[in-house]
């Protein structure tokens, strides 16, 4: 590790410790736990819920919903993006529809989705897929705006027909855009997930937050809130590590 990055790590650690300390003091002196529980209280609550297995179930359910919806949405968004990008008439035909749906936030669909798919897993998968699809689709399409004139010309000169030029030049050039869209889509997926779980679910971190309110357990609420943050950070870290490895030929920028 370089001196500069060690220093910045040290600074971050200091800031985190300072914040936690201030919070701990505030939680023990100014506020009662029902208003703002101290970090130590939240940690204790986390431990209790982990031992009982309930937290593990909540995390597993939330993670699986993200995973299924995120993968399905990424695949759908990438395929549609590539299709629209490659075939101008198709893009023109579908552009108004895409623009129309783009402004309907996923949560607006919650009620119809409940009617169509019930309270089960399918409804959450559909909502998260919907969220991710648009991010990946739009970012993939943005990749097509990148001019590849000489690279495409070279492909034609060096023996590639339209299909091979697409496969060997356009597709690899678009990879960073697709993966970039996936990363943004993953962030948005968490928002959709939590609201969907709060309003229509019997488990998951979103449900934990809302259920804790009903049970007047502020600690439980914070376990849910911080759980989302940890899950999000872990998902993003894992995604970056994996894509760096899989797409090591492409400079992804992380």
């Amino acid at each position: 590790m370089t001196t500069a990055s060690r220093q910045s790590l040290l600074r971050s650690a200091f800031a985190v410790i300072a914040l936690l300390t201030a919070w701990e003091i505030a939680g023990r002196t100014i506020f009662i736990p029902a208003v703002l529980p101290a970090p130590s209280v939240i940690l204790g609550e986390t431990w209790t819920r982990t031992l009982s297995g309930l937290l593990v179930l909540d995390v597993a359910m939330s993670a699986s919903r993200i995973l299924v919806g995120f993968l399905a949405g990424s695949l759908l968004g990438a395929v549609l993006g590539l299709l629209f990008g490659a075939l101008e008439p198709v893009r023109r035909a579908f552009e108004p529809i895409v623009q129309f749906f783009r402004f309907i936030p996923p949560i607006a669909w919650l009620t119809p989705v409940l009617i169509w798919f019930g309270i089960g897993e399918m409804g959450k998968w559909v909502l998260i897929t919907y969220t991710t699809t648009f991010m990946v689709l739009l970012n993939t399409l943005a990749g097509f705006a990148e001019p590849l004139r000489d690279r495409m010309r070279a492909a034609r000169v060096f023996g590639a027909g339209p299909w091979r030029a697409f496969w060997h030049v356009r597709l690899p050039a678009t990879v960073p855009w697709i993966v970039g869209g996936m990363r943004i889509g993953m962030g948005n997926s968490f928002q959709t997930l939590i609201v969907a779980e709060m309003l229509a679910s019997n488990e998951g971190l979103g449900h934990l937050i809302l259920n804790s309110r009903i049970q007047l357990s502020t600690e439980g609420m914070f376990v849910g809130i911080l759980g989302i943050a940890v899950l999000g950070i872990a998902a993003d870290f894992g995604f970056r590590a994996l894509t760096r490895r899989v797409f090591s030929r492409h400079r992804l920028g992380w």
Binding site: R149, R151, R153, A154, R156, V157, P172, V175, R249, R251
Partner: peptide, 21 residues
Amino acid sequence: GEPGMDRVVIFQGDDSLYPWL
């Protein structure tokens, strides 16, 4: 006719190389 391997091109600048290769 169409571009092809009987008339290969060396382009101005390096925008014709494939950065992922």
